[in-house]
Each structure stands twice: as structure tokens, then as C-alpha cells.
Design a protein around this nucleic acid. Sequence first.
DNA 1: GCAGTATGTTTGTATCTCGCACAAACTTAT
DNA 2: ATAAGTTTGTGCGAGATACAAACATACTGC
Lengths: 416, 416
Amino acid sequence: MTFENQPLRSLNGFRMTGRDVPDTGSVTLVSPSAIGAINRGRVLQALYDNGPTSRADLARMAGVNRTTVTGIVQPMIKEKLLVEGKAGRPAAQGGKPARPLYFNPDAPMLGAVLLLPGSIQTCLVSLTGEISAHRRAVFDPNGDVDAFVATMKETLGKTLSEAKQPPFGIGVAAGGMIDSDNGVIVAVNLAPVLSGLPLVGILRDHFGLQVVIDHHPRALLVGDRWFGPGRGQQNFAAIYTGEVLGGAFYMDGKVYRGLAGSGGELGHTIVQIDGLRCNCGKRGCWETLGTLSWLRAQAAEAGIDDPLDIDCARLVRLAREGSEAAMDLLDRYARNIAIGIANLQQTLSLNAYILHGDAATGGTMIADLVRRHVEDFVMMRPNQEISILVNGKGEGHTALRGAAGLVVSDHLKLVI
Amino acid sequence: MTFENQPLRSLNGFRMTGRDVPDTGSVTLVSPSAIGAINRGRVLQALYDNGPTSRADLARMAGVNRTTVTGIVQPMIKEKLLVEGKAGRPAAQGGKPARPLYFNPDAPMLGAVLLLPGSIQTCLVSLTGEISAHRRAVFDPNGDVDAFVATMKETLGKTLSEAKQPPFGIGVAAGGMIDSDNGVIVAVNLAPVLSGLPLVGILRDHFGLQVVIDHHPRALLVGDRWFGPGRGQQNFAAIYTGEVLGGAFYMDGKVYRGLAGSGGELGHTIVQIDGLRCNCGKRGCWETLGTLSWLRAQAAEAGIDDPLDIDCARLVRLAREGSEAAMDLLDRYARNIAIGIANLQQTLSLNAYILHGDAATGGTMIADLVRRHVEDFVMMRPNQEISILVNGKGEGHTALRGAAGLVVSDHLKLVI
DNA sequence: GCAGTATGTTTGTATCTCGCACAAACTTAT
DNA sequence: ATAAGTTTGTGCGAGATACAAACATACTGC
């Protein structure tokens, strides 16, 4: 099944909310007809956040009349986007039992792509977060653009062809510098072939589906928000550690993108003026202290076995087995990761941070160490609590679900 | 004239938008009647941002029908909030000349309070930003709460009594840690008498007016946004330097407050791990490098005359007069200020920064130096430009207008 | 079987924007 | 001077939406 020239479908209603909103200089008035799409989006988000929920509960949560919720969900049930579950137990005082609503498992799915230097992963993601039709491919990071595009089209095409019905859209998570507004990959240090590639336009034209692209940490954030530990949260950040350091923020119920999607390049905030030389050419970037390269160099100095193969998971194992050198290094690693989080906390006060990548393999042990150092580094307010969580689902998993979540987020324009 | 038990008036319509919106857990649906208040607010903001504007122009900017704008502004004209200006020149092709709308100079004003350790300033601010009925008073930072409250009531009462009609509300800008959600001063290091004081409740009950409080840098930000160089901008930060360092952000057309108004405590982000000891007890805070204390210590070392009286303005004068030591110190001062701005830029990518306080006294010279260092410290994108502006209006001026702007912002709940 | 209670639906109402038609006011061409 | 063209600002009905009131439904407890 292919989807060339399909009419664009929409998740939250019966009207496309694509690129049709010209930014006319900061003022935009709201029309009564726009209310429908907005409220449909909010109801869907409430369902995501809370799981199966009855109309009456939704109405209570939103502070609106039950009739309003009925009016919103009825067309969605008719469209087979939502299904009514079995009547639950009524309350102790009696009453008609509530019938919970949730997403139809047979509803259209979302296409997801994870694009890292040299590797492509594609899959389908259901509205409830299940992954299927997963495929991998490789490409030459220094090779030919046309060859890359052909590989991409073929791999994604095979994945999409396994869908029973046209997906709602395609989400792409990519490493490197992304201009998400214009759907262009600006530059990828380790894959020059991708630089300047208008991937969104290419895929949209080829598959006839809505396509959204964003950079990798932001996909992790969205994956956390829709399907992971960030579900239902209004303020948190996702932090990626590994060979590089990156991050993305969810603030006041909204993904922060900055101008042209350029916010969140945390790895190159400076935590040590005139410190170690960084790959970016500057000195003292957070990335010089919180990445695997630092960890491995330090492991060698500390005399830990196979220092080039060390990662957070093994370091935690060694520490648990009683190695003092490992414990010491782990603590210093945690401190280095904490410094950037602390600065972010001091700046935005999000209070919740989800670790991905290498640090996440260290589980609750590293999370606890990081939290303690963060609390040392920031000025805490009374009654304030900072939580550090790990999402150890494995990279591809969360990023792909996040890429799918990008499509969902794009449909549900929750902010006017 | 006193205003006890006046009915609360509203700027953007005919319904109070005070504390009546319960946060029912992230979901809130929009009602058609809510649209009215929202759109009224947006039209008012467009008028603020663009100055006197005709209905037709407003409609074009907002992308709506002219009749819609008429429907919105007509009641405001009737209420004497807006006035119709003289008909301007028609377009070259002819046509009926447009009649620009703007705020009525005789509309109610805003009360503003600037509260710093030991000093109170109060004034009235018109909707167009003019200050009048300015008063000052002092209080003992370690004294008695009741004495402080009495002084505050008396000073503010005198200012308010000069208004011809009840103001829309009172805005308070305060140094220290503020819980703007609950209207409480959490703690002020240099004025223990204020700690824990529920000032909003006290003033609201006494004067019968809506009262809003926020911390000092955020008032500067709002002052910039409504009446200063940030007018019409959608993304920028205000940076205050002096004895302390602080900042506040305007992101996507909205003041960022963080949880309970705790965002933006930039002075204590760490730019030098294990660096100089800071007043807060930690090491390497930005505040150890970007404040007057640092500047004065360095001035002494550099052999500059009267090092304890040095400030940015004098340093710039000395540098202009040819002092190499002054020029060198100025550049290092600019670099230290730049480091925190660079980290903020790397994190949020706001691209525009307005300096206040000591640095602002250095004018365009320091602004240029800071900009150059910021550009060295961050990874620039293609076509990206960073601007550093100074608002040299003098502290009280911008902060007081910002305090007034807080009231305006609070009325115009532009985000649903 | 009946009262009590909670859920979900139907019907009519209020609010708001939009498109259309039109008067008013001004410029340009004949 | 007159007519045509253009732009502004204003009534009026249509369409979309949430809300309140009333009602049918389904369960508990006596």
C-alpha cells in the first residue's frame, strides 16, 4: 500500500492544521470555529495523560459540562479514532456505571524515523505507543545525497507498506542541527551528506503524508512526554548523555523550540571558563566533562580495566562490587553531569529531569548521585523537590516513539 | 480619594479574570465567551506594540475581518479606554482616511511600587507609560513588620490619592525571592523584615485594588516589553548587573515565571567549577565574576584611581580617555558578563538581551564588547544575529513602569 | 418495587467571528 | 464639475461552539 496523493488526514478534527497559519506579526485572534480543534486536542491529550477515562471524568478534569465532552468525543468515536470500553464499576453510592474512552487500537498509526550518522531506523507506532514494522538501514555519511534519499525512501516505504491504513503522518528524529520550522537538516558534523537537506519536503512529496522533523533530544523529550516517565508532566527536561550532551525542555505544557528550533544546545554551555578544549573549538563546555570521552580518559587514569570500554552501566556494576576507584569515578561523573542540570535548574526551575543515553544505563544509582550533586549546586527553595529519573528503554525505542509523538504534537496544536 | 472596596475593574473587558481559573490539572477547554476576553487582550497588545493603529490595520495584522475589530474596539471606545484619533492621510490610491485608535490619556492609570531593601518608591503610570505622583520612603530593613506595612500603606496611599479615578491595579517589583503565584515575599537577604510577608493580600485588602507582585528583574523585563526596547519583541531577556546578577525571559510572547515564579535566578548558575566563593555559599557562580564587587577588586589590582568608586560608566570614560588598564579591565568585565548571557543563549536561543543596572551605564561601548564575547562563546547558526541592547533609563524608571506593566500583563491573559 | 445517584443525550440559548452588502470619505481621470 | 475607483467602517444573517436544563438510562440500597 502506498500513500501518494492521499488527502491529508488530521488527528484532532476534520480540518488540516498544517502550514496554513501565516505568522502575521504576533497578533492572532481566535475564532469560534478554532475552538473545536483546540478542545478536541485537549481532550485527546487528557486521554493520553490519564489513560482510559469516562466522559464525566474528562468533563470534571476540564471543568466543563458533560455535554461538551459528549459533543467532542462522539464524532471521534464515529470516526473510529476512539473506542468506548466496557462499563466499569459504578461508585459506591450507585449510579450509572461510566464507560471509559480510549484510543482505538485499530486507528491509523504513525510513521517514525530515527536518523543518526550512518544509520536509518524506521517503524510504525500506534497511538498507544506500540512499535511495529521496525527496519534498519545504513548509509554512507560522506556519500551521495541521491543514494541516501533512495535508501531512505525504500526503507521507510517498506515500513509504511505494512500499515493497514494510511498513517496520520511521519515523524523524523535526527542528530545534528535541525531547522524544524522549515524542515531542513542544517548541518550534521558526522554526516556531511545530510547538511542542508530539505528532508521534510522530500518525504512529504513522496509519501503524501504530513512530515515533521526535530532534533534527537527533542524527540526523546516528546517520547518521554507521550509514552514515558514525562507523561502528564507540565515541566521537565530530557537530557541525553553519551558521546555528546544534549537536552530539550517541556515548559508550561509545551515543547520549547526557540527560534527555528535552535534551543537546548546545552552541551556547549560553558561551565569552566578557559577549561578543557572542546570539539566545538571553545573551552570549558559542559560536553568536555559529561561525556563518555571524559569518562574513558578518567577511567584510564584511575587504572580501571578496559578503560576504553567503560560505560555508566559497567561503572555502576564495578562500584556495586566494591571498587572504590569505580565509586569515586562514578561520583565525579555524576557531579559533572549534575553541573549542567543545576545550571538549567537555576535558569528555568523545571524541577524534573529525565536522563537518556549512557547515564541512563546507570539506573537509579547514578540518578541518585546526580540528584544529590544538583541539590548541592542550586539554591533550593522551601518545599522544593528536584527529581532525576532515567529512561532506560534503549535509545532507538524512546527516540522512535518520540518521533511519532512529534506528529501527534503537531496535530494537537494545544496553544493558540 | 481612596479606593477601599471599589468593585474590581478590568482592562480587557467586562469580567474579572483574577483568581477564578482553577488549575484542574492541565486540561482546560476554551469557551466561546472566553474568546472575547482573549481577543480584546490581543487587540490591546497590538495597540501597545504598534502605537496608534486603525481598525483596518489591526484587522490585517490579526488576519481577521474588519467587522470583528469593530466589534471589539467599539465597546472600549464607549468605555473611554480607547480614543479615536484624527483621520490620517488616505493611501495614495485614495479611499476613506483611516482613524487611528489609541489609549485614552484620561483612562485610569496603574499604581506602581518598587521595593528594594530599605527603600520604597511609588508612582502612577499611565497606559502610555508616563510616570507621575512619584514618591519615596525609607524603612528599616531589620525593623518591625507593622512599621514597614504602615509606611508602605501611607506612601502608596498618597500616590494613589493623586489619581483622578481608581487605577486598574497596583504592580509591585521587589528585590529578593518572590512567590508571585501566592503574592508572598519569600525571603530578602538584605531586608529580613520582608521575609514571608504576604504583601499582595495586605495591599489588596487595604486599597481594594488588584495587586500583582514579581521580582525585580522580571519587572525590568516587563518594563522593556511594554515601554522600552523590548516593545513588540517576542523573545528576549533582561539582564540586571550590579551588586547582584539577575535576569528574566520573554519567550514566545510570554513572560517565563517557572514554578511559583522561581525561574531566572541566573546569578547563581555556575560558570567556573570550584571557582571563587560566592555569597550564596557555592563556588564559581556567575555572580562572582559579573558584579561590581569583582570589578572593584580588579580595579584595585589594576591600579585604577579610586577603585572602590569605579563603575561601568567611569570605566568607559577612562577607557575612552585612553587608559589601557581601564580598557583591559572593561573588556574582561564584558567577557564575564558575556559568559552568562552566552550560556543563556546556548540554552534558549533568544537572540536579544537588554542590559540594566551597572552595565547599562556603560552604553553602547560595553554592549558591543559583550556582544563580541557572546558571539565567541556560542555556536552561531547561519544567518543568526545576536543583539545586546542597553536600557539606560535609570533603575527606578524602568522598574516602576515594569511594575505597572505587570498589572497590564496580568489583565491581558493572552494565553489560553 | 422504589428512591437515590451518577452517566450520557437531547434541546434550546448565548457568545462570538465571518462574509456580504452598503454608506461615507477621499483620489484620480475626463 | 462629474464620474469612477478605492479604502474605511458598519449593519445583518449564517455558522460554530459551549452551556444550562431536562430527560432517559443503569446501577445501588432498602
